[in-house]
């Protein structure tokens, strides 16, 4: 069995809305293993995005502990977390979230600037990444000049620029048509298989689930299923019906 990469212990996230406390995550216990492909599913408002932000160290829990490679990072400062994010985690968002002032190549270079990668190496690495997604001809185009699928490929390339161990994708196919969505998921699957990246995909689209080994169902801030076989069978049954 592969070693633990991220571990959540009794994690709570409670938002304070004036005098009202709104618990979004309620005592989550979860372990994600190195090199796994995990899908987090759940309806809107279930807390899956909040869970994704906690897994991506973009947010801190109200209660509970988060361990990354065995180290408790829940008490880390924003700057310490930023450093870990830059080195170990790549993000892919539903809205692509590319910087609009920069072209495709510059967007991929950007995370490397924050990690102090030397200039020549940055450019070389970014060009390689663009080429691996067949986007080299679009290197000097800004996001506004690219299609949704192209933007998402640039976003995946950007997520890989510091060669992180973990890729977290939030509804990566949500803004794409089904055939482009399939290309994107294939790309993530390739990363998992060939480069042994740990992929965490947050989605409410059940067709995405068949790419993963581990499907986590979340509802009302609690994990209700966390089983590969069970979900896989369910997904196959559903896809046969449709």
């Amino acid at each position: 069995m592969s070693e633990s990469l991220i571990k959540l212990e009794n994690v709570w996230k409670i938002y304070q809305l004036g005098k009202i406390e709104l618990p979004v995550l309620k005592g989550i216990n979860l372990e994600i293993r190195k090199g796994s492909f995990v899908t987090i599913m759940g309806p809107s408002g279930s807390g899956k995005s909040t869970l994704m932000y906690l897994l991506g160290l973009l947010d801190v829990p109200t209660k509970g502990k988060i361990f990354l490679e065995g180290e408790n990072v829940s008490g880390f400062s924003e700057n310490e977390l930023a450093k870990i994010r830059g080195q170990k985690i790549g993000f892919v968002f539903q809205q692509f979230n590319l910087l609009q002032n920069l072209n495709a190549l510059e967007n991929i270079i950007m995370p490397m600037i924050f990690q102090s990668v030397p200039e020549l190496e940055r450019k070389e690495r970014a060009e390689k990444l663009l080429a691996s997604f067949d986007m080299q001809k679009r290197a000097h185009h800004r996001p506004g000049e690219l299609s949704g699928g192209e933007q998402q490929r640039v976003a995946i390339a950007r997520s890989l620029s510091n060669d992180p161990e973990i890729i977290i994708a939030d509804e990566p196919t949500g803004n794409l048509d089904s055939s482009t969505g399939k290309i994107i998921m294939e790309a993530l699957s390739e990363l998992h298989k060939k480069e042994k990246k740990t992929i965490i995909v947050v989605t409410h689209d059940p067709t995405i689930a068949h790419y993963s080994q581990n499907i986590i169902h979340i509802q009302d801030g609690q994990i209700i299923h966390n089983h590969f076989q069970e979900e896989k069978v369910l997904w196959e049954q559903n896809s046969h019906k449709s």
Binding site: E78, N79, A82, M110
Partner: peptide
């Protein structure tokens, strides 16, 4: 949002 993206991809507060 741009600031959020920069933070997500590793920008520290000082950057």
């Amino acid at each position: 949002k741009e600031i959020g993206i920069m933070k997500a991809i590793g920008a520290k507060n000082s950057a």
